[in-house]
Design a binder for these strands. Structure first.
Lengths: 342, 342
DNA sequence: CTGAAAGCGCTTACAG
DNA sequence: CTGAAAGCGCTTACAG
């Protein structure tokens, strides 16, 4: 550290006690007399001493650091998660070490992560290779895949029930009497999109309804806008669009209104997934499926804390129930409308 | 660390070299023969060894950690900053240690921050007490106040030219012929709001125009919505509203359209500040002042890196030029319209 | 180039 | 309760 960093030795000298005593004064529960503690604390105050958390970590093997990997923060679901997770972890005495990743450099980043001896890893970006996941297990570092999972993975995962949520949302659309329901997919290799699309398809086929059209928006704004235009370049307009997440849905609605002059929901219904803050904005009032951040974060922290304290890594897969949030971006069947207004 | 963590000693044994040799093999530029390096690297690979960055930090006094303090991520300016800053820092070999703060517990959090021996601090939340700022100077830790400043502070700061930006934006409104221009303020104690409001007032008074009405939205969505309603509860409607940031402006526009049935910009002009991603969405097309994140982050990283390497903390105040982004949420004077469309 | 050794700032048995 | 000492996992002069 730079010039003025004070060490326990200096405090000891000033307080006329041993360096061990200084250490004890800052260790809750250590056996130390009130008198000595007071002298140490006074001296520390005077010198501006703060225990070195890094040195402590080297000694105890506990860094109190949790690595969080994120690919992008454009979809506002992630900032909300980051904030909630950070506060929850801080309340437990842990701090987040943040890593922004790109598609493709996940493993490289993880190598770096492990270097910091973090006590846990939350992957809110792509997932890690199985080799690395194995290394984490070997090293005893719990890994939680957040909002994603890999079948047969060694890592734990926390997701909402994307399949069921999508089913219920699709049901809503079908009940409202829509005939031509289109689907705009997110990133096709993501577990969220796979499950949501599977839920959509399951409900559609159960109702004996063909999927009107399908386009891919890759979870980006631009992708969603282009997908929407392609949808309307084809013959036979959809009367409803199931968009794989909210972030894309805003782009879809904007194109619908602005480029195509359509009214939502009068001319066409649009639903999304996530329930990010903007979904509740009056400009969108998006009907969507809520991914309940609080319970998801709680589950994540619980897994982490439990495995850290038990010093054993076991794979857990948590599925948090999803909830349909009915707003005004879609037409509603009369009986649903009544139920909602009540 | 847990069970399977490998140390340099174990690698040394397997490679049949000294522990120092292992350390050298992982220190770029250290004097070591290719032969020994290779043996070490092979052994390390075999055991899954990674140097302990924490121990390294204790030894070298360089943690390669930068603390970032944020209060909330609701205003999407901050997630964008966080992502950009994180990538810029990572490119320099630094990692972000994230701290979510609340109003009021800043100092407490800073104490914790210092414990981790971070090499720099970016305050994108409230600012720290002068006592603490002094301690940071004493300890040689550079502090950058991001998007805020404190007069006569010991900390460096990076801001955009809020005053000038606000003036130019106000000019745009005046030139368009608006007569009743209202102002919706953000957090009144923030430097951003003070400067923006000062710029607004300066331009208004220079033009000999009275401020129509003023309300406070405190930089929150709810605050902005209520402020808008209060604005219209008063006698004499505004024909333009200068909102202190984009985040609030979206709420203002939504209330205007949704609750009051007004058209933007036909019935009323609205402008914001920041140029967050949503400002460009077709649903808003908000005229605003861009706070250029890239240059701001670059300046921040430059200050940090320079002061870290020179091991000297000096107070620097960077003002990045702001830029008016003309979109469609406000009426435009004919000559401006022409200039823009060109 | 290489190893033995001292040192970084701590924690924590071990004796008293 | 208290201090001297060993140890955590590294880095880095110092000799060879």
């Amino acid at each position: 550290m730079a010039k003025g960093v004070v060490t326990s030795g200096q405090v000891a000298k000033l307080a006329k006690v041993s360096q061990s005593a200084v250490s004890r004064a800052f260790s809750p529960g250590a056996s130390i007399s009130d008198d000595v503690r007071k002298r140490v604390l006074d001296a520390a105050e005077q010198l501006g001493y703060r225990p070195n958390a890094l040195a402590k970590a080297v000694n105890t093997g506990r860094s109190r650091l949790i690595a969080v990997l994120v690919t992008y923060l454009d979809n506002h679901f992630y900032p909300v998660v980051l904030e909630t997770l950070s506060r929850a972890l801080q309340a437990r005495g842990y701090q987040i070490l943040l890593f922004m990743t790109d598609r493709g450099n996940q493993d490289e980043v993880i190598q770096k992560v492990l270097t910091y001896r973090v006590e846990g890893i939350v992957m809110a970006s792509a997932d890690m290779s199985s080799t690395l996941a194995q290394q984490c297990v070997d090293t005893g570092i719990p890994v939680v895949l957040f909002n994603r999972y890999v079948p047969n993975s060694l890592s734990s995962s926390v997701v909402t029930d994307n399949f069921e949520g999508a089913r219920k949302l699709t049901r809503l659309l079908i009940d409202a009497g829509h005939q031509n329901i289109a689907f705009i997919a997110g990133a096709e290799d993501s577990s969220t999109n796979k499950d949501r699309e599977a839920g959509f398809l399951a409900e559609m086929s159960e109702a004996g309804m063909p999927v009107h059209l399908r386009e891919v928006g890759s979870y980006t704004m631009e992708g969603a806008e282009e997908a929407t235009r392609r949808l309307f370049a084809a013959r036979g307009r959809p009367d409803a669009i199931f968009v794989a997440n909210d972030h894309m849905a805003f782009g879809v609605i904007d194109v619908l209104r602005d480029d195509l002059g359509l009214k939502v929901p009068e001319d066409i219904s649009v639903v999304g997934f996530d329930d990010v803050p903007e979904a509740g904005w009056k400009g969108y009032r998006l009907t969507t499926v809520r991914q309940p951040v609080e319970p998801m974060v709680r589950a994540t922290v619980d897994i982490l804390m439990e495995q850290i304290s038990s010093n054993s890594v076991e794979t857990r897969a948590i599925i948090v129930p999803s909830q349909v949030i009915v707003r005004r971006s879609c037409r509603l069947a009369p009986f649903v409308r009544e139920a909602v207004s009540r």
